[in-house]
Each structure stands twice: as structure tokens, then as C-alpha cells.
């Protein structure tokens, strides 16, 4: 065992990258849940985004186009969920599970020709002056664009929910859909838009996994990242800022256990690989004391009788 081989600066830098996929998926799901919809299909949308992004990036040679395709793939899949829950008024939990099962099958089918293929590399932004600062430079300022896009997205969602009229309407729909409907807001339209946004974010997160984090395509490669993103939303008490904290925590755990594996700690690899999931459970237990913050209409079916 050689713990000295773990470089703390590189460790912190890789936490930023490791947390990006779940951060993207979780911030999308946060918006969905604030609108009163519980979409358990994050895992399915993520993996569909992963293969759509991967296939298009390989086909066009441009990772940027790949990311757009990943987001589009996730959004299109999420519209199926919207159709089920908002038009056919199906149970949210069952529909979300259906979306995940379907997405896993769909992605495996789409990804058949892509096993073992290398994607085009995503460039790192080497920000001139800031990137040269010792310690902070490599940690904060030497990542690819998507890391900053994810951070910006968190800021935008936070500001939208807190300060904008659109955010207020979204929250109203999530807290009490009957009252929002009575006030003349289009409950279904707001929710469909939120679901599509959540799908696009999850797809983007999936594309980041297959194009940057891993980077290659394997079946079932998200390995529960979508579910961890769902747990993150609970952890964050439906607050955008705390999603960021949670994502760093989970990114930290997964990077640390990978580093420990590489350093040859005397614990079998399998037990180390369990740790992100176990930590998720522990955190859920700690956070679930505070139930009051969940949107009041979360997971309830809305049917305008008039």
C-alpha cells in the first residue's frame, strides 16, 4: 500500500470532474421535482444521453455536437415520461421505472457497434493566467468546458427559482397544482417543460460520462449514477446550492475509493466499489429527518376536471 502516491491536488481536481455527471442530472431532476413531478427515470435518460452523445461525437468527430445530441436524446426520452404522466395520468413511480428499464434496453441496442471505440477527445480549457496559479490553478481552472457549464447551470437554476417569475410559477405548480390551475397557470405545460429540461440535463450528464469521464461506451455504464442523482436531490432538500455540495461529496467518495484501489489498499476492490452506494444510504438516513421541504404536490397526479 502506498498512500503517498495519492496527490491531493490532482485528487481535488478530479473531484470537480467526477461530480459533473451527477451534478448535471441532479440539477435537472431538482427542477422536475420542484414542479411536483417525481421522475425516477433519471438512470434511463442518463444512459440514453450517454450513447446518443457518444454515437454522434464519434460520427461527427466533434464532442460539442455529441453533448448537444446527448441532451437531445435525454430530452426526447423524457417526453415519453411526460406523455405517460401528464397526458395518460399514469403513476409517476411506475412510469419512471418503465423509463429506466426502457432506456437501459434502448441504449444497449443503440450502442451495439460502439463497444471498444474511442471517442474524440474533449479539449481542456487552459485558462491562461488563472490556470497558472499554484494549487488553485489545477484544481479550479484547468477543466473542460462542461465542468463550468454544469456550475453555471446550478447558478442559473438557483437564480431562476429564487428570483424570477417563471421560477415562482414553477414552484407554485409544484406546491399546489390545484391552486396554480385555479390561478390560470398551465400546470401540464409547465410540468412538461420541466420534465424535458430534466431529461436534457440527465442526457448531458450521461454524455459527460461516456465522452469525458470513462471515456468509452459499455452497456449499463452509468451504474447507478442516475439513482445517486435522485438521492442527491433529497440530500439537498430541493435546494440548488446544496446540490452542488452533495455532488462534490459523492464525487469525492468515488474518486477517493478509486485512488485507494490504485494505491493498493488491503481491502478487496469490490468492497471499496460499494462505498459510494453505502455513503448514499448513510446520507439519505441523515437527511430524511427533514421531510418538510419536499414540494407538497410531489408525485401527485393532476387532472383538471374542468
Amino acid at each position: 500500500m502506498d498512500l503517498g502516491s495519492i496527490n491531493p491536488i490532482l485528487l481535488l481536481a478530479s473531484i470537480m470532474a467526477a461530480s459533473t455527471p451527477i451534478l448535471l442530472a441532479a440539477i435537472g431532476e431538482l427542477v422536475v421535482e420542484r414542479a411536483g413531478v417525481l421522475n425516477l427515470g433519471v438512470e434511463g435518460m442518463m444512459i440514453t444521453g450517454a450513447i446518443c452523445g457518444f454515437a454522434v461525437a464519434v460520427g461527427t468527430g466533434s464532442p460539442a455536437t455529441g453533448f448537444v445530441a446527448g441532451a437531445a436524446g435525454g430530452a426526447v426520452l423524457s417526453l415519453l415520461f411526460a406523455l405517460l404522466t401528464q397526458v395518460a395520468l399514469a403513476n409517476h413511480v411506475a412510469s419512471g421505472l418503465a423509463l429506466t428499464l426502457f432506456g437501459l434496453g434502448l441504449s444497449a441496442l443503440l450502442g451495439q457497434g460502439y463497444v471498444g471505440v474511442k471517442p474524440p477527445p474533449t479539449a481542456r480549457l487552459d485558462i491562461p493566467v488563472l490556470g497558472d496559479i499554484p494549487v488553485l490553478g489545477p484544481i479550479l481552472f484547468s477543466h473542460d468546458l462542461m465542468v463550468y457549464v454544469a456550475l453555471a447551470l446550478v447558478a442559473v437554476v438557483w437564480a431562476m427559482l429564487k428570483y424570477s417569475r417563471a421560477g415562482l410559477i414553477l414552484r407554485a405548480v409544484g406546491e399546489n397544482h390545484d391552486a396554480a390551475h385555479a390561478l390560470g397557470y398551465k400546470v401540464v405545460r409547465v410540468r412538461v417543460l420541466a420534465i424535458a429540461f430534466g431529461g436534457a440535463c440527465a442526457g448531458l450528464g450521461g454524455a459527460y460520462l461516456s465522452l469525458v469521464r470513462v471515456p468509452q461506451w459499455t452497456e449499463g455504464m452509468t451504474a447507478g449514477a442516475g439513482w445517486i442523482a435522485l438521492a442527491l436531490v433529497v440530500f439537498a432538500s430541493w435546494k440548488a446550492g446544496r446540490v452542488l455540495l452533495g455532488a462534490w461529496l459523492f464525487g469525492g467518495v468515488s474518486v477517493l475509493q478509486l485512488n485507494l484501489q490504485a494505491a493498493g489498499v488491503a481491502i478487496p476492490v469490490e468492497y471499496l466499489s460499494m462505498s459510494p452506494y453505502l455513503i448514499t444510504i448513510v446520507v439519505l438516513v441523515i437527511m430524511s429527518a427533514d421531510k418538510s421541504r419536499a414540494p407538497a404536490s410531489l408525485g401527485r397526479i393532476f387532472h383538471a376536471s374542468q
Partner: peptide, 14 residues
């Protein structure tokens, strides 16, 4: 492909 069957089963629930 095996994945097509998996998707087929998912569609059924949908």
C-alpha cells in the same frame, strides 16, 4: 440483438 428483447419488455410496461 439481446438488447432488442430487453427494450421489447420495457415497451410492454410503457
Amino acid at each position: 440483438p439481446a438488447a432488442a428483447i430487453q427494450m421489447f419488455q420495457g415497451m410492454l410496461l410503457f
